[in-house]
């Protein structure tokens, strides 16, 4: 059973939609601005020749689904554990994203999440969530407790990681409380949410839970929206950029007739062209 907006007052739902709309606007503006900057770079790289913002977005998506990116081929040789965590976050987050798209389709367009499909869907997203939670947890551990000997200090990095961690954590809480309250027959297909539910149920009375649910649900969507809106303005921009760099670096030593990915000032280009004309 899909339970969208269970127990949420109508007014709050409107607020949710306002925030969702604002988030999309901010994200699109920031993202488009970034793509505009990228495409304003000098057009000398073979692989990026003639690409405008749309082409670059397309390349970024294609390269995201390349094995090099999805299997973190450059990270694994450096550190197995970090490779595993990154792949976890990447796959988990992708699944959660696709899951949200699926639920939206199910809610707004046509219903397909029923019976067995819904159970499997719930299980998969629960696993994805827990993988991201563990991955970000590891990231926070590495940043604040394990601390590599040499590290560039950055507050933004801490905020970003914590935000991602809290999005998932509050998500599980929301799911847990709902499962605890509704107690649907197949709740154990969402094992992690169910476990969270067990814990909150033991801690709070049913009345408190209802209020708590609304509170945490609000926090969850606020975190999630701020996270999404922050992506194009923070280092999480690497979600779109890194796969392109990795792909270009892989091509670096393939012999090329004339190395064109160099930077030349207008003056040099002019003199070179003059020479060619002679």
């Amino acid at each position: 059973m899909v339970a969208e907006f269970w127990n949420i007052p109508k007014g709050l739902i409107s607020v949710f939609y306002v925030f969702a709309f604002a988030t999309v606007i901010i994200f699109v503006l920031g993202f488009w601005d970034k793509m505009r900057i990228w495409s304003k770079g000098m057009d000398v790289d073979h692989e990026l020749k003639g690409m405008g913002p749309a082409g670059l977005i397309w390349l970024s998506i294609i390269k995201f689904f390349s094995p090099d990116c999805l299997l973190a081929k450059r990270l694994f040789p450096r550190s197995f554990i970090r490779g595993l965590m990154l792949v976890g976050i990447m796959w988990g987050f992708t699944l959660l994203f696709l899951g949200t798209v699926g639920r939206s389709v199910n809610y707004y367009m046509f219903q397909f999440l029923d019976g067995g499909v819904w159970l499997l869907f719930s299980l998969l997203l629960d696993i994805a969530g827990v993988v991201v939670l563990v991955g970000t947890g590891f990231g926070l551990y590495r940043k604040y407790i394990g601390k590599p000997e040499r590290m560039v200090k950055s507050t933004q990095d801490g905020i970003l990681l914590s935000l991602l961690f809290l999005v998932i954590f509050s998500g599980f809480l929301v799911e847990g409380i709902r499962l605890a309250a509704l107690n649907p027959p197949a709740a154990d297909w969402s094992p992690i949410g169910f476990a969270f539910g067990g814990v909150v149920k033991a801690l709070f009375e049913a009345k408190v839970l209802s209020a708590l649910y609304i509170g945490i649900w609000t926090i969850h969507f606020l975190f999630a929206f701020s996270f999404i809106a922050y992506i194009p303005f923070s280092k999480y921009e690497h979600i779109f950029a890194s796969q392109i760099s990795a792909y270009l670096f892989g091509n670096k030593w393939k012999e090329k007739e004339i190395p064109s990915d160099w930077v030349f000032t207008e003056e040099i280009k002019r003199r070179r062209d003059e020479r060619l004309k002679q």
């Binding site: 495409s39 790289d45 990270l75 392109i244 930077v263």
Partner: peptide, 18 residues
């Protein structure tokens, strides 16, 4: 004068500290 690749690279760094 920076290339597209270089502008993308500026956004690629994850500060993984490797």
């Amino acid at each position: 004068g920076l290339t597209k690749k270089e502008l993308i690279e500026l956004d690629s760094c994850t500060r993984c500290n490797e």
